[in-house]
Amino acid sequence: MFGNICLIFLQMVVILGVSPFVVGLIRKVKAWLQCRKGPSVFQPYADLRKIFCKEAVIPSTTSWIFTITPYILFGSTLAAGLLVPAFFADMPLGFAGNIIALVYLLALGTFFLILAGLDAGSAFGGMGSSREALVASVTEPAMILSIFAIGLTAGSTNLNTIVHRTALFQGVTTDPAPHLLALGALFIVALAETGRVPVDNPATHLELTMIHEAMILDYSGRYLALVEWAASMKLLVFLSLLVNIFAPWGIAVEATAGAMTLGLVAYLVKVSALAVVIGILECTVAKLRLFRLSELLGAAFILALLAVIFFYMFRG
């Protein structure tokens, strides 16, 4: 029992602690590719600390929805983070929810963020909310189908079991094709869900293009800090999903200190590598028009569908 609580606590610390680093790393990679020096990888920590201490300005039009949303967003994202095995394959909270529960936990945060965007009453917030509602709803089918494809190849939709089986090479070696296709689909979905480049540009404040930034435009002070932190945690959750479902190598399977340390290091390396990939992608790909989104997500859906089809075909 005590060990489990320690594990949960450790996982929480990892998710909370690593997430700003990932954002900083992506920014750094982008800066390098644009021939800039860029701020330090640890700049987001300093930013968070600073924003936490600032005075919060609360728009007078808003209701309690506006002030409660950051906490709900933070809580639901962190809860999702506790469901994903990061460095240890048997998270004690694994029973609390499978990957679908994780998706819906994140959706809870999105729902409240959409409401908060509407609450301020300016056109920007409404615009962001309306677009976020579109993105959130059309990514769902591709996400669920790719989850199902993963569930088929691993024989479970429980994250612990998936990671465990993949880590021990059970079930995956026989058919790489469905697994690869599902990876492609889930990667596109992750980009859309976390508001990365082909879908949304986290570095912009241009009203024509912004989605996530538009929703949180009226936040400041500690509320902004919580929302930003939650956004980076969401990114980390998706990165952890991708690396640990498809490449859980090095993850601790036994609860020994050595294995855990190794798992932690491997986790950091893998997540950083994926963050670098995203950074490179953001520099090379142009942002899509909002209404071209359906093509991207249509492609993700087809990838996931093909993953399912290939699974059954190769199963014989």
């Binding site: 809860a79 506790l82 909270l93 499978n98």
Partner: peptide, 16 residues
């Protein structure tokens, strides 16, 4: 194939 625990989720949401 899957598991979910509603009370646990609720407690997690509140606590976190």
């Amino acid at each position: 194939f899957a598991s979910v625990s509603m009370p646990a989720l609720a407690i997690m949401l509140l606590a976190l």
